[in-house]
């Protein structure tokens, strides 16, 4: 089996509470998987498990058929191939300047200096933050720190990129820029798992959406189908307005039943009837 495969993953907190309960997950090459659920539903813990940063109480993990060994270099190798961008960028940025921080991972891989420099330059260019390279971390905005955190993981060239609520706290333009970066990575073949509470983002961005509740997968499938389900509505509220309008359009016969529901504003506008044109009123001033 190619890609990242998790079977029966379980994790318990030290006080015995179940955080992740028998989760099965497949992340194929180039997949875009959204992960959502209420606060405390186990999203972040599941990402930590997938990244090999906490040890599961039960279950197995494999990437392209090989699993992480317990401890040692094998496990470290796993972390090089499955990269995790933490929810709080401040936790992740360790070095004093942007370039130092992006270099941190590749240097830990033991790569020669010229390879490290080439990787760092490439990743900084990909995320359009090359101009930030010499700047100190503490002088960056939240959106810039988020992109530097992603760059630090991408410089290790992971096969699977895990992102924990990457758009939280970003302004709309920052979110759009980040999604553009993710699209570029997706086109380059990186599999991405994105945990988010933003249902519109999950609908727009993911090819497959998974809903967690109390550590269990309760819904999984195409995002428009998952977000239209009654179960998801009970857990997460009414869901994106775009879906609701799309359903109204379908009910009114504007959207053919064979067509998928719109997943972003552009698709929605395509199906919306144009408003009647009004003749401009001419006012005569006396």
């Amino acid at each position: 089996m190619t890609g990242l495969v998790a079977t029966g993953l379980e994790y318990r907190y030290p006080d015995g509470r179940v955080a992740v309960d028998r989760v099965d997950l497949e992340v194929g090459p180039g997949a875009r998987i959204g992960l959502t659920g209420r606060n405390g539903s186990g999203k972040s813990t599941l990402l930590l498990l997938l990244a090999g940063l906490v040890r599961p109480a039960a279950g197995t993990l494999s990437l392209d058929g090989a699993g992480p060994a317990v401890g040692g270099a094998e496990r470290s190798g796993w972390r090089g191939r499955v990269g995790l961008v933490f929810q709080d960028s401040d936790d992740q940025l360790l070095a004093p300047t942007v370039r130092d921080d992006v270099e941190y991972g590749p240097r830990n891989l033991g790569l020669p200096a010229d390879v490290v420099a080439e990787r760092v330059d490439r990743v900084l260019a990909l995320l359009e933050i090359a101009d930030l390279a010499p700047r100190p971390i503490h002088a960056l905005s939240l959106g810039q720190r988020r992109r530097v955190a992603i760059a630090g993981v991408l410089a290790m060239e992971p096969k699977v990129l895990l992102l924990d609520e990457p758009t939280a706290g970003l302004d709309p333009l920052g979110t759009a820029a980040l999604l553009e970066c993710l699209d570029r990575l997706h086109r380059a073949g990186t599999a991405i798992v994105l945990a988010t509470l933003d249902l519109e983002l999950a609908l727009r961005w993911s090819d497959r959406l998974i809903v967690l509740d109390e550590g269990r997968v309760v819904e999984a499938g195409p995002p428009d189908v998952v977000l239209s389900s009654a179960h998801c509505a009970r857990l997460m509220g009414r869901g994106p307005a775009i879906l609701a309008v799309g359903r109204q359009l379908r009910a009114a016969g504007v959207l053919p039943s064979g067509e998928n529901l719109p997943r972003d504003l552009d698709q929605l506008l395509f199906w919306l009837p144009e408003p009647p044109k009004r003749e401009p009123r001419v006012l005569t001033l006396r």
Partner: peptide, 29 residues
């Protein structure tokens, strides 16, 4: 809490792969 978060983030980027990287990571953390 901070040490835990920083340590976890460092481990995610192989910060403790060998003695040299571990020393550097400990300094950064």
């Amino acid at each position: 809490g901070l040490v835990g978060s920083l340590d976890r983030a460092a481990r995610a980027r192989l910060g403790y792969r060998d003695a040299r990287t571990a020393l550097r990571t400990a300094g950064l953390v």
